[in-house]
Amino acid sequence: MEQITGRALILACSAVGAGLAMIAGIGPGIGQGYAAGKGAEAVGRQPEAQGDIIRTMLLGAAVAETTGIYGLIIALVLLFANPLIGLL
């Protein structure tokens, strides 16, 4: 069997880790969908307050997105600025 170098192993595991980190995208998906659903409900009940509702909803959706963005940052670091390679 061909010898696997430490560097190759780290790169392979980092690629898998980057993929796993992006599972974090599930959370914001659910959260933003919930926010949008409640926003639609609120507009249906009170159509004259549409501007305020949309603004509040977008703000809430952006805050809900944060955890997904953290996952994306971890994936990007693993792919493009891997700190583990330096430990070899």
């Binding site: 952006a62 994306l72 940052i73």
Partner: peptide, 10 residues
């Protein structure tokens, strides 16, 4: 900072 960065770089 990371929210803005992550969205744009993504």
């Amino acid at each position: 900072g990371f929210r803005l960065f992550g969205n744009i770089i993504g």
